[in-house]
Amino acid sequence: MNTYFQSFCVYLSKVENLKKNSLDAYSRDISLLMRFCEEQDINDWESITPGIIHDYVKMLQQNEKSNATINRHLASQRRFFRYLVQEGVITTAPEQHMERPKVERKQIEVLSKDQIEQLFLKIDRRSVAGLRDLIMLRLLYESGIKVSELIGLDVRDLNLKGRYLVATENDSTRTVYYSRETSKYLKKYFQLREGFDAVNEDMPLFINCYQTRLSRQGFWKTLKRTAVKADIEQSITPHTLRHSFAVHQLQNGVQLKTLQSMLGHSDIASTQVYENFLESRIV
């Protein structure tokens, strides 16, 4: 089983060009499925039936995994089994008729424009790390980029002259734009960043003190510390800035269809959440 799992990971990396965060997520999900199958004395992918997948989902539920997490596991399986069908290992995917648990939408959290400005002001931009944090916060709010896309950016994804980024998630890419002021901070960040090489396109755009890619958890901690300094009492996450971007764009008169494209939503129903939010309260 492990042989096909490893070849799948290579396929995602070399053929699909997935970023490390996405690769790690697929690896964790399929590894857990493999361990579950081995515990059931199943040693090849051909022996996995819809009943096994059903039992696997029950195991996740017993371990108090959320419906959103279970759906992510099923999505990982769907892609993996599609690969096995493509390679001729199996003829049909055992999870294809599995019903997905319903996920209740959480109430979105949005910051006011004044709160956003306070976040920016509370960052010490005299250091390389401070400049990095300011740029990342500004990009989240100015472009609506997802934090997973932001963390996964490499040097090749940045176009300073055109003031845009190529954001990648799974097998889809989109172009997001940022302001002249953020462009100014980016140029200064590169000037001060130790070991920066614009020619090395594989270099992570945002790094930590160990010169490796900044993690999502590391950035989240920075955001929480900055929120405390800015006297923001509500609980916020990087996604709060994306929500704020969407709501403020609608307030500025951007059309829903345009916002859908800016956010990279495949279904406009996902974008309509922000329109409904505005109708229910004043931000």
Rank of each mutant, 00 (worst) to 15 (best):
A227Q: 04
E109D: 10
F206Y: 08
T271K: 05
S76I: 06
I282C: 10
R125E: 11
L186T: 05
L60Q: 12
S27Y: 15
G253I: 01
L158E: 00
L250K: 04
L134F: 14
Q249C: 15
M136V: 04
I236L: 12
V166Y: 05
V15E: 15
D124H: 11
N276T: 12
S7F: 11
L140K: 07
R35F: 03
K188M: 07
L119V: 05
Q251R: 13
K257V: 15
E181G: 03
I108F: 00
L250G: 02
Y4C: 07
E181I: 13
Y185K: 02
C209S: 09
L259D: 11
W220V: 09
L158N: 01
M98S: 13
Y56G: 02
F81S: 05
L192S: 04
D171V: 14
R78M: 12
Q255P: 00
D133I: 09
I30N: 07
L33R: 02
M262K: 07
E279A: 15
I145P: 03
N159K: 13
S47P: 12
I116M: 14
L74V: 14
T92R: 15
A198C: 05
L134T: 06
Y164M: 12
R163W: 04
R174Y: 01
H243M: 03
V15R: 11
V199F: 12
Q234C: 03
L223R: 07
D202E: 13
Y4A: 13
N71Y: 03
G218K: 10
S7C: 03
I116Q: 13
C9W: 10
A167C: 12
L33F: 15
L278V: 08
L60H: 10
W220R: 03
S31K: 10
V103K: 14
Y178R: 02
D124L: 14
R180N: 05
S183A: 11
V199R: 10
M59C: 06
V273E: 03
N67R: 13
S47A: 12
L74D: 12
A68W: 01
N159T: 07
P204D: 06
F36K: 05
V228T: 06
Y164N: 11
S261F: 04
L111S: 06
S143G: 07
E46L: 09
G195M: 01
L60Y: 02
M262Y: 06
V228K: 13
G218N: 11
H239S: 14
D267R: 07
C9L: 15
R213T: 00
G152S: 14
R225Y: 09
